[in-house]
Amino acid sequence: MNDIFWNVGYPHYLVLAAILFLIGTVGVLVRRNALIILMSVELMLNAANMTVLIFARMWGDLSGHTFALMVIAVAAAEAAVGLAIVVAVFRGRRNVDVDRLTTLRH
């Protein structure tokens, strides 16, 4: 226990990323507000990004950094479009509760 606290290595970072991803998953599954769901998706993207950087560091390969940069750009695009959809939905229905968006259900 003492060793696992003071001797921080790659497993620590990987477990941190895994827990972050799981928290994002739980947020997507249990919350009903579309904004919180978008934020949880961002958390999951960040966890995946952190894993990419950890493995880049582990293998001494810099192309992981390039990939992480691409992921950040795609996440920014996703956030912009997702928030635009949230605003459009709110304009039509006055709420962003995903459990009440049942128009496409037959």
């Binding site: 919350r31 009903r32 507000n33 962003v96 509760d97 459990d99």
Partner: peptide, 11 residues
């Protein structure tokens, strides 16, 4: 923009 309190935040 959508400043609305949630009544039931968790499904």
């Amino acid at each position: 923009i959508l400043n609305r309190p949630e009544d039931e935040p968790v499904a």
